[in-house]
């Protein structure tokens, strides 16, 4: 029994690794996707002499076959060496590390906000299915899912920063509390869509459990509503928690737009600047890092599902 579970886990991990390898090949191919000469693209907008061009070709092993070049790039990327940025001329690795903190703080705050507001709201809606509160929450969640973060962000900026003056307009602030204060509006804008998704998800999961026979049975046996609710929530928690893990991907997509809107120097705005400047080494590194984080989270979620729920374990083994 345990051996088969381990085999499943290993198979899943191997699949993730294969996926990442395929993705890295695609990411490496970005260099060739851009129109024009690869060496010239790497030099950016600088003036070039033929000698400099030849030097770049040699430095990046551009005279070697494609797969050899790919291997050369990948083996360096594994050790955190993503080459030098075209735009700044500095190493890509430290540049990324420099920008990580603010993105992690914004995304973490947004995640916290959306879970703290979304899960209770979803449970409340499910318990009052069809009543005015439920309808209101469902309608609000459709608006939340539809609204792009940057549009929400700009409206928040207008109302709370310019209109009411409660929050700063741009920038990151000094010191811990001030910095946190600067991150409130971006996090709320990011959490708006995410929270709406959490409400939808929680509501669906709780309603699914409420419709189960065991709830009718427990009520028939005369269990108090509170104890019934505890049973329902424990069962509904599994799909909710696992889906939360998958939202990491959504957070990464949204953070680009939010950071641009609020002029935050994070990974997202680095991505925007690098794409617009065609700073390909930075774009490659960022894409690879995001892919790594997203697939690692998906893998962790799958495996934790396996650990939590014996029914899933049985199904996975049978397959």
């Amino acid at each position: 029994m345990n051996g088969t579970v381990l085999a499943f886990a290993l198979r899943r991990a191997a699949a993730t690794l294969a996926l990442l390898l395929a993705l890295s090949l695609l990411v490496f191919a970005l260099l060739y996707l851009a129109p024009g000469d690869v060496a010239r693209n790497l030099l950016g907008t600088r003036n070039v002499t033929p000698e400099a061009l030849a030097g770049i070709r040699e430095l990046h092993h551009l005279d070697e076959p494609f797969l050899a070049q790919y291997w050369w790039w990948l083996s360096h990327a594994m050790t955190g060496d993503f080459g030098t940025s075209i735009r700044t001329g500095g190493q890509v690795g430290p540049l990324l590390l420099d920008r990580t903190g603010i993105t992690a703080a914004t995304a973490g705050l947004a995640f916290l906000l959306s879970v703290l507001a979304g899960v209770p709201a979803g449970i409340a809606a499910a318990l009052r299915r069809g009543r005015p509160l439920d309808r209101m929450l469902v309608a609000a969640s459709v608006v939340g899912v539809s609204a792009p973060g940057f549009a929400v962000g700009l409206i928040l900026l207008y109302v709370f920063a310019l209109g009411l003056g409660w929050f700063p307009v741009y920038g990151t602030g000094e010191g811990f509390l001030d910095a946190l204060w600067h991150l409130v509006l971006p996090a709320v804008a990011l959490a708006f869509g995410l929270g709406a998704f959490v409400v939808k998800l929680t509501r669906a999961a709780v309603i699914r459990e409420l419709d189960q026979d065991y709830v009718t049975f427990a009520r028939g046996r005369g269990l108090s509503e509170r104890r019934v609710l505890r049973l329902v929530l424990r069962n509904a928690a599994i799909p909710i928690v696992t889906s939360l893990g998958l939202m990491v991907a959504y957070l990464f997509g949204g953070t680009v737009l939010i950071e641009v809107t609020f002029a935050l120097p994070g990974l997202g705005s680095l991505m925007e600047e690098s794409v617009l400047f065609k700073d390909i080494p930075v774009v490659q590194a960022l894409t690879l890092v995001v892919a790594l984080v997203v697939s690692a989270t998906a893998l962790a979620v799958d495996l934790s599902y396996l650990a939590i729920d014996p029914r899933v374990r049985a199904r996975a083994v049978r397959r």
């Binding site: 996926l19 996707l33 990464f252 390909i280």
Partner: peptide, 24 residues
């Protein structure tokens, strides 16, 4: 299935930004 796995491994908005920015 593999094609879907590959594209779903990354947030689509992010991929669109990268590809649209690099390709044209």
């Amino acid at each position: 299935g593999r094609y879907a796995d590959l594209l779903l491994a990354l947030p689509s908005v992010l991929l669109a930004i990268v590809v649209a920015g690099i390709v044209g």
